[in-house]
Design a protein around this nucleic acid. Structure first.
Length: 187
DNA sequence: CCTGTGATCAGCT
DNA sequence: GCTGATCACAGGC
Protein backbone atom coordinates (compact mmCIF):
# COMPACT_ATOMS: atom_id res chain seq x y z
CA UNK A 1 0.00 0.00 0.00
CA UNK A 2 1.42 3.42 -0.95
CA UNK A 3 2.55 5.92 1.64
CA UNK A 4 -0.10 8.26 3.00
CA UNK A 5 0.77 11.92 2.35
CA UNK A 6 1.26 14.30 5.30
CA UNK A 7 1.25 18.12 5.32
CA UNK A 8 5.05 18.28 4.85
CA UNK A 9 4.62 16.43 1.54
CA UNK A 10 2.72 19.42 0.10
CA UNK A 11 5.47 22.01 0.54
CA UNK A 12 6.60 21.98 -3.10
CA UNK A 13 5.59 24.75 -5.50
CA UNK A 14 2.33 24.39 -7.40
CA UNK A 15 3.53 23.01 -10.77
CA UNK A 16 5.86 20.54 -9.03
CA UNK A 17 3.05 19.34 -6.74
CA UNK A 18 0.55 19.17 -9.60
CA UNK A 19 2.99 16.91 -11.50
CA UNK A 20 3.76 14.76 -8.44
CA UNK A 21 0.08 14.21 -7.61
CA UNK A 22 -0.66 12.47 -10.92
CA UNK A 23 -1.19 8.82 -9.95
CA UNK A 24 -1.85 9.61 -6.28
CA UNK A 25 -4.98 8.03 -4.81
CA UNK A 26 -7.60 10.35 -3.29
CA UNK A 27 -10.43 9.00 -1.17
CA UNK A 28 -13.18 10.93 0.62
CA UNK A 29 -14.95 8.67 3.12
CA UNK A 30 -13.51 5.74 1.19
CA UNK A 31 -14.86 6.93 -2.16
CA UNK A 32 -12.55 8.00 -4.97
CA UNK A 33 -9.62 6.78 -7.03
CA UNK A 34 -6.45 7.70 -8.83
CA UNK A 35 -5.80 11.32 -9.73
CA UNK A 36 -5.24 11.55 -13.50
CA UNK A 37 -5.47 15.31 -14.14
CA UNK A 38 -4.42 18.40 -12.16
CA UNK A 39 -3.72 22.10 -12.65
CA UNK A 40 -1.33 24.39 -10.77
CA UNK A 41 -2.22 27.89 -9.51
CA UNK A 42 -0.01 30.41 -7.74
CA UNK A 43 -0.18 33.89 -6.24
CA UNK A 44 2.03 35.29 -9.03
CA UNK A 45 -0.34 33.82 -11.60
CA UNK A 46 -3.11 36.09 -13.01
CA UNK A 47 -5.41 33.08 -13.53
CA UNK A 48 -5.33 32.14 -9.84
CA UNK A 49 -8.04 32.95 -7.31
CA UNK A 50 -5.19 33.94 -4.97
CA UNK A 51 -3.71 36.49 -7.36
CA UNK A 52 -5.40 39.53 -5.80
CA UNK A 53 -4.70 38.49 -2.24
CA UNK A 54 -6.86 36.90 0.45
CA UNK A 55 -10.66 37.16 0.34
CA UNK A 56 -13.34 35.31 2.24
CA UNK A 57 -13.61 32.75 -0.54
CA UNK A 58 -9.92 32.00 -1.08
CA UNK A 59 -8.58 32.29 2.47
CA UNK A 60 -7.82 28.55 2.67
CA UNK A 61 -5.31 28.99 -0.19
CA UNK A 62 -3.29 31.21 2.15
CA UNK A 63 -3.46 28.71 4.99
CA UNK A 64 -1.06 25.85 5.73
CA UNK A 65 -0.13 23.39 2.95
CA UNK A 66 -1.70 19.95 2.96
CA UNK A 67 -5.23 21.25 3.37
CA UNK A 68 -8.27 21.52 1.12
CA UNK A 69 -9.36 24.66 -0.69
CA UNK A 70 -13.00 24.15 -1.74
CA UNK A 71 -14.63 26.82 -3.91
CA UNK A 72 -17.94 27.27 -5.68
CA UNK A 73 -17.51 27.34 -9.45
CA UNK A 74 -20.00 29.26 -11.61
CA UNK A 75 -22.33 29.43 -8.63
CA UNK A 76 -23.09 25.71 -8.96
CA UNK A 77 -20.24 23.23 -8.55
CA UNK A 78 -17.89 22.52 -5.64
CA UNK A 79 -14.30 22.12 -6.75
CA UNK A 80 -11.36 20.76 -4.74
CA UNK A 81 -7.78 22.03 -4.53
CA UNK A 82 -4.83 20.89 -2.45
CA UNK A 83 -3.07 23.85 -0.81
CA UNK A 84 0.69 23.66 -1.29
CA UNK A 85 4.01 25.53 -0.94
CA UNK A 86 3.89 27.47 2.33
CA UNK A 87 1.44 29.21 4.59
CA UNK A 88 0.60 32.67 3.33
CA UNK A 89 1.68 32.05 -0.26
CA UNK A 90 -1.60 31.25 -2.00
CA UNK A 91 -0.56 28.22 -4.08
CA UNK A 92 -2.76 25.26 -4.90
CA UNK A 93 -3.43 22.28 -7.13
CA UNK A 94 -6.87 21.84 -8.68
CA UNK A 95 -8.01 18.21 -8.87
CA UNK A 96 -9.52 18.01 -12.37
CA UNK A 97 -10.08 14.31 -12.98
CA UNK A 98 -9.94 10.94 -11.21
CA UNK A 99 -10.00 7.35 -12.39
CA UNK A 100 -12.75 5.82 -10.21
CA UNK A 101 -11.50 2.89 -8.11
CA UNK A 102 -13.52 2.71 -4.87
CA UNK A 103 -17.19 3.42 -4.15
CA UNK A 104 -18.16 3.47 -7.81
CA UNK A 105 -21.82 2.72 -7.02
CA UNK A 106 -21.95 5.60 -4.53
CA UNK A 107 -20.49 7.91 -7.16
CA UNK A 108 -23.03 6.68 -9.71
CA UNK A 109 -25.88 7.50 -7.34
CA UNK A 110 -24.53 10.97 -6.60
CA UNK A 111 -24.05 11.75 -10.28
CA UNK A 112 -26.99 9.86 -11.74
CA UNK A 113 -26.49 6.71 -13.79
CA UNK A 114 -23.60 7.27 -16.10
CA UNK A 115 -20.63 5.88 -17.90
CA UNK A 116 -17.82 5.35 -15.37
CA UNK A 117 -15.69 7.39 -17.69
CA UNK A 118 -17.71 10.53 -16.92
CA UNK A 119 -18.02 10.09 -13.16
CA UNK A 120 -14.97 12.21 -12.28
CA UNK A 121 -13.94 13.73 -15.64
CA UNK A 122 -13.78 17.42 -14.67
CA UNK A 123 -13.43 19.42 -11.44
CA UNK A 124 -17.18 19.89 -10.91
CA UNK A 125 -17.81 16.18 -11.52
CA UNK A 126 -15.04 15.24 -9.08
CA UNK A 127 -16.69 17.43 -6.45
CA UNK A 128 -20.10 15.87 -6.95
CA UNK A 129 -18.89 12.25 -7.19
CA UNK A 130 -16.69 12.49 -4.08
CA UNK A 131 -19.29 14.37 -2.04
CA UNK A 132 -17.16 17.51 -1.65
CA UNK A 133 -18.99 20.16 0.38
CA UNK A 134 -17.99 23.64 1.52
CA UNK A 135 -17.57 22.36 5.09
CA UNK A 136 -14.36 20.65 3.89
CA UNK A 137 -12.77 24.01 3.05
CA UNK A 138 -9.55 24.36 5.05
CA UNK A 139 -9.74 20.74 6.23
CA UNK A 140 -6.52 18.72 6.62
CA UNK A 141 -5.95 16.20 3.85
CA UNK A 142 -4.37 13.65 6.21
CA UNK A 143 -7.48 13.38 8.38
CA UNK A 144 -10.97 12.03 7.94
CA UNK A 145 -12.76 12.11 5.62
CA UNK A 146 -9.71 12.58 3.37
CA UNK A 147 -7.00 10.08 2.49
CA UNK A 148 -4.28 10.83 -0.03
CA UNK A 149 -1.78 8.12 -0.95
CA UNK A 150 1.44 8.86 -2.82
CA UNK A 151 1.82 8.09 -6.49
CA UNK A 152 4.16 5.16 -7.03
CA UNK A 153 6.30 4.14 -9.96
CA UNK A 154 7.45 6.22 -12.90
CA UNK A 155 4.29 7.38 -14.61
CA UNK A 156 4.24 9.04 -18.01
CA UNK A 157 2.84 12.55 -17.44
CA UNK A 158 1.67 14.88 -20.23
CA UNK A 159 1.59 18.67 -19.92
CA UNK A 160 -0.47 21.41 -21.55
CA UNK A 161 -2.21 24.77 -21.05
CA UNK A 162 -4.96 25.03 -18.42
CA UNK A 163 -8.64 24.80 -19.28
CA UNK A 164 -11.34 27.44 -19.02
CA UNK A 165 -9.14 30.45 -18.24
CA UNK A 166 -8.51 33.61 -20.26
CA UNK A 167 -5.53 35.07 -18.38
CA UNK A 168 -2.16 33.31 -18.69
CA UNK A 169 -3.92 30.93 -21.08
CA UNK A 170 -0.60 29.77 -22.56
CA UNK A 171 1.09 28.74 -19.30
CA UNK A 172 1.55 24.92 -19.41
CA UNK A 173 0.40 24.12 -15.89
CA UNK A 174 -2.08 21.34 -16.68
CA UNK A 175 -0.83 17.81 -16.02
CA UNK A 176 -2.30 14.46 -16.99
CA UNK A 177 -1.64 10.74 -16.90
CA UNK A 178 -0.59 9.80 -20.44
CA UNK A 179 -3.15 7.66 -22.23
CA UNK A 180 -5.76 7.80 -19.45
CA UNK A 181 -9.38 7.32 -20.54
CA UNK A 182 -10.60 9.40 -17.56
CA UNK A 183 -9.34 12.88 -18.47
CA UNK A 184 -11.73 15.82 -18.70
CA UNK A 185 -10.35 16.51 -22.18
CA UNK A 186 -7.55 15.21 -24.37
CA UNK A 187 -4.22 17.02 -24.24
C1' DC B 1 -17.99 16.80 -34.79
C1' DC B 2 -19.17 21.60 -33.33
C1' DT B 3 -21.43 25.94 -31.15
C1' DG B 4 -24.89 28.11 -27.99
C1' DT B 5 -27.33 28.61 -23.58
C1' DG B 6 -29.13 28.35 -18.78
C1' DA B 7 -28.13 27.58 -14.08
C1' DT B 8 -26.46 30.69 -10.11
C1' DC B 9 -23.13 33.35 -7.05
C1' DA B 10 -18.57 35.64 -5.27
C1' DG B 11 -15.73 39.08 -6.47
C1' DC B 12 -14.47 42.95 -9.08
C1' DT B 13 -15.26 47.56 -11.73
C1' DG C 1 -23.37 44.91 -14.30
C1' DC C 2 -20.14 41.46 -15.88
C1' DT C 3 -16.93 37.57 -15.58
C1' DG C 4 -15.66 33.38 -14.46
C1' DA C 5 -10.38 27.31 -12.44
C1' DT C 6 -18.20 24.29 -15.09
C1' DC C 7 -21.63 21.13 -16.76
C1' DA C 8 -25.63 19.25 -19.23
C1' DC C 9 -28.38 19.51 -22.83
C1' DA C 10 -30.11 21.16 -27.34
C1' DG C 11 -29.50 21.84 -32.10
C1' DG C 12 -26.76 22.14 -36.66
C1' DC C 13 -23.36 20.20 -39.96
Amino acid sequence: MPRRLRPADFEGDAPEMARALIGAVLLVDGVGGRIVETEAYDREDPASHSHSGPTQRNQAMFGPPGRAYVYRSYGIHWCLNFVCREEGHGAGVLIRAIEPLQGIEVMRERRGLQDVRLLCAGPGRVGQALGIVHAFNGHRLDRKPFEVHASEGNLDVVVGPRIGISKAADVPWRFGLAGSRFLSRRF
